[in-house]
Nucleic acid binder design. Sequence first.
DNA 1: TTGATTGTTTGACATATGTCAAACTATAGC
DNA 2: GCTATAGTTTGACATATGTCAAACAATCAA
Lengths: 104, 104
Amino acid sequence: MHGKIDALADIFKALSNPNRLKIFMKLTTCCHPGTPAFFDKQGAEEAMFVGEIGKDLDIGKPTVSHHIKELRRVGIIRTERRGQNIACWVDPILIEELKTFFSI
Amino acid sequence: MHGKIDALADIFKALSNPNRLKIFMKLTTCCHPGTPAFFDKQGAEEAMFVGEIGKDLDIGKPTVSHHIKELRRVGIIRTERRGQNIACWVDPILIEELKTFFSI
DNA sequence: TTGATTGTTTGACATATGTCAAACTATAGC
DNA sequence: GCTATAGTTTGACATATGTCAAACAATCAA
């Protein structure tokens, strides 16, 4: 019942909310696609946690959590617990598929 | 009030409905992007009209019209009257921008 | 184990969306 | 003019969505 078209529409729906789109764009610029973290020049590990994501978005914690859940549901991001935090990163395969989709 | 993020989110929203996504995909495969029509081997002109679009989508005319309007509003397709019909085609510039967006 | 921090779930609510039937508009051809 | 065809607008309605406050859960640190 849930074919390819619906899955694709679901991905676009996930990106159709301004706040979710901002979250997605933040994740694409913070980390190298496919990795939950990157290393700065000093070699210290950096990562994008759920808490940081919501910082400059001016929306409540429950809402951020809800959006992260939705982005993960459609497969566009992945998450992983790190102690008290949840690290987030974009799925490079899905991004590649979307790029291909618009390569008409 | 309606910045770049919101405009982009609006485009994704336009593609987030399965029926609208089908319409979009139909238009990308029927016509050469940027042109409202193409010519077949015999040289006869072909075009994708609003009526044809709704044929195998199993939704009413008002709904098709509504979806076309929405796709045009966000700028992803363009339309042009041809006698009694309305020809539709995708805007290649917008498609290219979307492709670039996913070229992370 | 108690407290602090981080994130999730639940429940509620206002708003947005998708759809159709009916009425309407525009164009073509007679 | 009239009639047929193609598409739009209006009005209505059910469902989906975005958001928050409050309560809950998980992890760490002392």
